[in-house]
Design a protein around this nucleic acid. Sequence first.
DNA 1: GTCTATACGCAGATAGAC
DNA 2: GTCTATCTGCGTATAGAC
Lengths: 211, 211
Amino acid sequence: MSQIRAKNEAIIIRAASRVFAEYGYAATKTATIAELAGLPKPNIYYYFGSKAKLYRAVLESITEPLLAASEPFLAHQDPVQALTAYIKAKLAISQDYPFASKVFASEIMHGAPHLPADIIERLQGQTRTLTQRLNDWMAQQLMLEVDANHLLFAIWASTQTYADFNWQIRMALDKKELDEQDFEQAAQLITQLVLGGCQVQSLPNANCEIK
Amino acid sequence: MSQIRAKNEAIIIRAASRVFAEYGYAATKTATIAELAGLPKPNIYYYFGSKAKLYRAVLESITEPLLAASEPFLAHQDPVQALTAYIKAKLAISQDYPFASKVFASEIMHGAPHLPADIIERLQGQTRTLTQRLNDWMAQQLMLEVDANHLLFAIWASTQTYADFNWQIRMALDKKELDEQDFEQAAQLITQLVLGGCQVQSLPNANCEIK
DNA sequence: GTCTATACGCAGATAGAC
DNA sequence: GTCTATCTGCGTATAGAC
């Protein structure tokens, strides 16, 4: 792949993410994407072939970060550390990929009609891994016995909402844009709800690293 | 308004809610709504004038239930009872109005371009009332000092997710449809997170009704 | 109040020059 | 690899018969 192709594809994906996020797939005009990208419309078709293929490319661009967000969950043995890091990672996605997140959310909301089957499977596999981990901790008495699935739904919803329903949140906070501090407050609150609500305990033999 | 008009309008609103929820505004064809309603397409235009007006009618159909959900919050003096009832009421909306909820969510997600200004104002007023109530409880030491806005965002997100991201939840639970029990488990978990996470206390002079 | 048949505009896609 | 000019189909909306 040529340099110029790679560069233009990146520009188009970026522009497309913003426009698809703002208007939704059907209401998005390829002309709008082209305009925002600073390119003539046929270039979009030259690089991506069709609106639908471009849309899939946008969906795929968010897949890796999304799957990577669960790494902290597996990296930490300690449930307090793992859950704290997971919530932070999930919020970071809302903060760092606000447009792609919304596109993804909109896709899920309408039953994922365009989401490739392999992505669905990878996400499902991740869900199973996470619930299993939570259930292990419960069996070890490191947290209260709750339904692991519903706990995950609550974490997903309350972290994604900062991207998906950004408008509503900005209205309530009376702010033009959410800043770093808002996300930190969100992280603190959600972490408090999860750790406090489920009485999550640190590992007895936790290695308390001094930073 | 004639009997027949009222009846047909209700049928059309019902069908439109389902179709708008499934496909989103732009991707929805009036022909699909007509088909689901069992009426010829021009009837839609006869009763509602345009696709946009029909869409607004669907949005307005969910407004009253949505505003009514905060009544428990104000009806109960006791924070434990109030929050428990509020979470239950919010989940009931996801359960009882799954389609209209999704339409509303989709609208908010895209910056509420079609939502009438008076509805926005009423929702904002409600938000202010709720945060004030929470802040009062905190001042009275009935719960930990947390950011009231962020707590509301978490409650909204984790209850609405059962309508908005119903597909994702059904996938994770491996179920065709969510049943009464799923919503009860959700209510229990979310209530536990909120009450436990914020250490919400009952009023000292709580009137403990024996049921 | 109901419905068949049709007009019209918009946006996805492309032909073909450069 | 780039872009102007154009084609075409689909979906909103309506005219007009019943």
